[in-house]
Nucleic acid binder design. Sequence first.
DNA 1: CTCTTATTGTGATTTTTTTCACATAATACA
DNA 2: TGTATTATGTGAAAAAAATCACAATAAGAG
Lengths: 204, 204
Amino acid sequence: MTAISNKVINRLTLYHCLLKYTCKGNSFIASSKIADLLDLDDSLVRKDIALCGVLGHKKQGYVVAELKKSIEQKLGFSDRKEVFIIGAGRLGTALIHYADFKDYGIDILALFDNNPNKIGKEEGGKRIISLEKLPNLISRINIKNIILTVPPYAAQEVTDYAVKYGVRFIWNFTPTVLKVPKSVTVYNENVISSFMQMQNSKNK
Amino acid sequence: MTAISNKVINRLTLYHCLLKYTCKGNSFIASSKIADLLDLDDSLVRKDIALCGVLGHKKQGYVVAELKKSIEQKLGFSDRKEVFIIGAGRLGTALIHYADFKDYGIDILALFDNNPNKIGKEEGGKRIISLEKLPNLISRINIKNIILTVPPYAAQEVTDYAVKYGVRFIWNFTPTVLKVPKSVTVYNENVISSFMQMQNSKNK
DNA sequence: CTCTTATTGTGATTTTTTTCACATAATACA
DNA sequence: TGTATTATGTGAAAAAAATCACAATAAGAG
Ligand SMILES: NC(=O)c1ccc[n+]([C@@H]2O[C@H](COP(=O)([O-])OP(=O)(O)OC[C@H]3O[C@@H](n4cnc5c(N)ncnc54)[C@H](O)[C@@H]3O)[C@@H](O)[C@H]2O)c1
Ligand SMILES: NC(=O)c1ccc[n+]([C@@H]2O[C@H](COP(=O)([O-])OP(=O)(O)OC[C@H]3O[C@@H](n4cnc5c(N)ncnc54)[C@H](O)[C@@H]3O)[C@@H](O)[C@H]2O)c1
């Protein structure tokens, strides 16, 4: 199986959302329809779909149910991905309530915090646990992914701690740039950058 | 001034975060340092910086304060951008508390909701206003940007409503693909896609 | 004051991504 | 049954992005 670029992953995920929410009534969909809704070239959409191994039907387009399932398979939406959230503040607790995660195999097991008033409480059915218990739990359950939603000043320190005990993927919602070993992947969810990119589109 | 691609915007924003939080002590920074922290090629970093009109110093690198300011200017961080949030739920209220927005010129004026129990309340010093008042306020204050944080089922309806009264940019945090006229820009903040891209990096 | 070295700035090249263009073929309908 | 139409699938071309390679040169060591 060939590697798949981040750009393709992003588009396929959007096609999936489109099939799940926007076009859920239809049984067929044409590449030109997807392209139109997402402001893409239709041949690009067809090439993306071809990567999922799905064949379309002349004059009809793609079978929605089949395409949706194939995207799920290609991107591994049903593989279970266990995650801890570190930082049970406003953003961390918003994320724990995000219903769609489970449809994509993202299973948030618990929240961690260092605020004694929060520890022991529940959010969205998940426990808020003391950060001290992180090492033990990371290694016992073999957690590789964390969502980082602590204040910027605590981000590096918490990262070092988590990396030390085996975390490999850090979904960084803080506006900091983290120092990590080459073996660790950081994905920076930088909302400021998103906003600026949106504004930039006025040039189109 | 030449157009600037979204990829460049994203990297420049990350350089800015790096200068603001990670390297705030230093007076000089080398392209190789930035490249190392963000896992990029150092010549790419220099080309990005050149776009901001900043000149570096042989054997020393770039002056941090100057580079930071030039990125701010290039990306228009100090231009005021007024925004309404529609959907005063968990995510909408988390965003209103996000302190960094104001440093980047993003000024969230108010939240809108259709839940009578929320209307009239405050969040982060901003009023939660009835959605019915949106048309009047959009046109009176001439708001062009909205942050969309309503449930998926309400997303298209709310979008149509906002677009009708003149909104031009929609920062879409819902997992739906919105139908809008060509004159309107939607930026899809799709967290599922981000997570999948992060996981994909294991192939590197 | 000279030499070594680290770092920039950028042209050339390569790689990746997107768009173009069109042959192919299934469908609907007269 | 035949024909017009509307999609797909994909090679070729173009455009965009990233990497490579290295001359230029300022700083700092000695
Ligand atoms: N609020 C947003 O919408 C938003 C948007 C984008 C980015 N961010 C970033 O996400 C992060 C979280 O934002 P927030 O609004 O949820 O902040 P918050 O202050 O509400 O939450 C931070 C949480 O982290 C906990 N914490 C602090 N230090 C800790 C430590 N050392 N170990 C463990 N937990 C610790 C705090 O007790 C608190 O519960 C921040 O870095 C913020 O800049 C927030
Ligand atoms: N919670 C997260 O972390 C998260 C992450 C990514 C995406 N999202 C998406 O963001 C959106 C908001 O998520 P949330 O967790 O804040 O949900 P929420 O249910 O907490 O908030 C939704 C808010 O929208 C309001 N609302 C409903 N219909 C409305 C309408 N027609 N007009 C105006 N307001 C209306 C509700 O009263 C509520 O206050 C959802 O689409 C969700 O899928 C959420």
